[in-house]
Design a protein around this nucleic acid. Structure first.
Lengths: 254, 254
DNA sequence: AATATAGAAAATATCGATAAAATCTTGACC
DNA sequence: GGTCAAGATTTTATCGATATTTTCTATATT
């Protein structure tokens, strides 16, 4: 998830950006929850400046929302938005992938081989539980980013990154059980093979399938989650009685 | 260009974000030039915090680049990137436009009528020169954003905004003479008509043409600009003599 | 002449303090 | 019982100062 520390002198702002981003993506901060500066200051042991800068970046990434004079909060999620996200992502990745396959050098091919190996060797979950999860997430992102890395367009790379992160947040939030995708290993292998063979049409077909298959599962999980939330909301409203102030929206759930 | 001040209590950070963004888009800061905090502090009469926050947001928008420990600079431009940008933008806008036309209410229609009127009545250039230009830019952005505003997807709206801004920077930098697009008024009218008539295919065709026509001109202007720059670079290198330190890349040109 | 280097100058990144807003609380009032 | 408002509290937004890091400059070295 976090772009591994290849460059040297990272600033606190960059570190904090990565950390908060991961916390949002992994669902440590629930959608809609408030991100108080003071709380984050304490959590990460920093001054306000790097935190505010990191949050500002995340705002433009679409993971955090800012309202002037009343701070930052984690962006909301919805099944509708997820569908949109998925469609856009397929589009953008197709472009990037085709370009990368046209332009990619041997170095690029080697980077893919390496990323594939790392992903294959990393267990999805540690024996104890979710400890290893972050590492797998890193490898997974590394693999997908490697595929398009040679597209040669900064703007495409930026979008791929942002869309991956946003999509990934949905996956984490939906708490999709890894067993729901048993062939995920093979899918990655096939994709890598097609890309390395520079079979553009096949590669695109496979990757779009890869995304939409996960997408369908995610969508289902999200919808049932939304229904549950709606029910809870309803019953909460009923309990509070009619005429109660309509502050039920945007509950805190930090 | 700046999102007109409808909401009340805007923070200095938001104002600064809009101002720097406009300065970058309008070409007041040349591509690649350094954005020194102290200089901006002076220019806008503010502390460092809001400026750094604004720059951080622009970073994620793709208008500014940050390198840890050595500050911010205006993103570079290239004709290749512009092509990519244009293609992506057509894609995204098509999605957004179709959705908006499916979902748009009467309010949305009225917003378009209003934006069209404002754009039509605003002169491209004041009699004195470029004074009015900013106002026209505002109206132009307002018009284009109004078309897709009803798409219902925050992520699409965010992308439309970002891509509009990036595209617009290219237009400003290329210093395209308005007379190069004599029918621009009619084009906007036709687009508005098609959208209001909810003729999706026509509207999409018109808007893509609108973008690509400008795009072709822009592209040509950019290429000749790049050639000129390459020539200058070359002669500069020759003048400095061989063996001179290769610091010729990234000239300051503030 | 090219390279290396120590020190000076400039710029960035960050902190702690504070002013300005928002939010919450409490009690008066209809 | 519900609304409203003054005051207390929390939170945000911003500034000014400072530690770190980079960049520049002049000098010494091969």
């Amino acid at each position: 998830m976090a772009t591994a520390g290849s460059g040297k002198a990272r600033s606190r702002t960059s570190d904090t950006y990565a950390r908060i981003r991961d916390d949002v993506i992994l669902g440590h901060f629930a959608p809609g929850s408030k991100l108080k500066i003071e709380a984050l200051r304490e959590r990460y042991g920093l001054g306000a400046t790097p935190i505010r800068e990191a949050l500002s970046m995340l705002t433009a990434d679409g993971l955090v929302e800012r309202v002037d004079q009343r701070g930052f909060r984690v962006a909301e999620v919805s099944s509708g938005e997820f569908e949109e996200l998925l469609a856009i992502r397929c589009n953008i990745e197709e472009r990037a992938l085709r370009l990368a396959m046209e332009r990619g050098s041997e170095e690029w091919e080697e980077a893919i081989v390496l990323a594939r190996y790392r992903l294959a060797r990393t267990p999805r979950l540690g024996p104890d539980g979710s400890t290893k999860d972050l590492e797998w997430e890193n490898c997974h992102k590394g693999f997908h980013m490697a595929l398009t890395s040679a597209c040669g367009s900064p703007i495409l790379l930026r979008l791929c990154n942002q869309l991956y992160d946003e999509n990934n947040r949905y996956r984490c939030i939906a708490r999709l059980n890894p067993s729901a995708r048993p062939n995920i290993y093979d899918e990655h292998e096939e994709i890598a093979e097609a890309v390395l063979a520079r079979d553009a049409d096949l590669a695109v077909r496979l990757i779009v399938e890869h995304y939409t298959t996960t997408g369908r599962l995610l969508h289902a999980a999200l919808c049932s989650r939304e229904e549950a939330a709606a029910l809870k909301d309803q019953s909460a409203a009923a309990k509070a009685g009619p005429g109660h102030r309509a502050a039920t929206r945007n509950p805190e759930r930090v």
